[in-house]
């Protein structure tokens, strides 16, 4: 490795990269429907008996795009910026995300930092926008989001650190291709710990039980939902699409980390990614079905455990 800095992935044609990006756009909703119903307010798949349409998320988005918008008298331009920033950040993240061995649209040393910080920027604008509505509920949502981010951000970066930096790789795509050629004992434990860490984050960042309750109708207990109580029409569509993409992002990310453990070819890796994403969705459902929500002030400990897993994964690299 002549230089630790690296721009653009070495493998994969342009076509593949675009395909993986488009794939994210088309599939993120279909995974969200079975996990959380067509709306984050429905019960998990384990307790529903009639299947709902796989395309329900897209139907909802279609409807929202056709609806009008009601803006609050209190809001400024920032409120109108927030949905755009959320979706733009998620789009960039999915463009960067490698999929089943296909590299993302772009990749460079430290690209994961940009992605983490773009998510952070989207979160920041969303929190500000929710405070802009002058509503106590939205303030509550922003406040909780801000507090939990204090734990989630380090966990996210340490997770990436465990997978990318500690093993001496320059980017996620690079890390995946390197891991393809390592043995199970070298990579297995680290991958497992990082995957657990990211899974906890996925629950936290996508308002799942035990952090947030997607089925709640109650403003006082909401986190993410509380911040978007005042968004309507296309704005809401952008936000919902952005959160679908974010959920997809975390699932595929975990799949990307786990898959190199199985030394298989491209087609198998793509199928494997879908399989893992499906399993993760089922796992989310099972977690949601078997435990209650944490008391709000216990959530930091839960998210902190994600950081702890990543931390151990990094230290393990030094021991192994």
């Amino acid at each position: 490795m002549c230089s630790p800095f690296w721009w653009r992935s070495s493998g994969g044609s342009d076509y593949e990269r675009y395909a993986s990006f488009l794939n994210s756009l088309c599939d993120c909703g279909t995974i969200r429907s079975p996990v959380c119903g067509h709306h984050p307010k429905d019960e998990g798949f384990l307790f529903r008996e009639e299947r709902i349409s796989l395309f329900q998320t897209y139907r909802d988005l279609f409807k929202l795009l056709h609806k009008g918008i009601v803006y609050s008298k209190s809001v400024s331009w920032l409120f109108k910026l927030a949905p755009l920033a959320s979706l733009a950040a998620s789009l960039i993240a999915c463009a960067w995300l490698p999929f089943g061995g296909m590299t993302g649209l772009f990749s460079f040393t430290g690209g994961f930092l940009l992605i983490a910080y773009l998510f952070g920027a989207a979160r920041f604008v969303t929190m500000l926008a929710s405070l802009d509505t002058a509503s106590a509920f939205e303030g509550m949502g922003a406040n909780r989001e801000a507090l939990f981010a204090v734990f989630a951000e380090p966990a996210l970066l340490l997770g990436f650190g465990a997978v990318i930096v500690a093993p001496g790789n320059s980017s996620l795509a690079n890390a995946i291709s390197v891991a393809q050629n390592t043995t199970f004992s070298d990579y297995g434990v680290v991958a497992a710990l990082a995957a657990v860490s990211f899974f906890i984050l996925a629950l936290a960042e996508n308002s799942r039980i035990p952090v947030d309750d997607p089925t709640t109708h109650l403003e006082l207990t909401m986190i993410h939902e509380a911040m978007i109580l005042d968004n309507s029409g296309p704005d809401l569509a952008f936000i919902e699409f952005a959160s679908s993409l974010k959920l997809w992002f975390f699932y595929v990310l975990i799949a990307d980390i786990i898959l190199p453990l199985f030394h298989v070819g491209l087609v198998a890796r793509i199928c494997g990614t879908f399989l893992i994403v499906f399993v993760l969705a089922a796992l989310t459902g099972i977690v949601e079905s078997s435990m209650a929500r944490l008391r709000l002030m216990k959530v930091p400990q839960f998210i902190g455990s994600a950081a702890a897993f990543a931390f151990i994964a990094i230290l393990l690299k030094g021991i192994l």
Binding site: E43, G44, L46, F47, I209, P210, D213, T215, T216, L218, T221, E288, S289, S290, M291, A292, R293
Partner: peptide, 12 residues
């Protein structure tokens, strides 16, 4: 009550 603590089985 189960629903309010997000415990889906009893709620459902």
């Amino acid at each position: 009550l189960a629903g309010d603590v997000g415990y889906l089985p009893t709620k459902s």
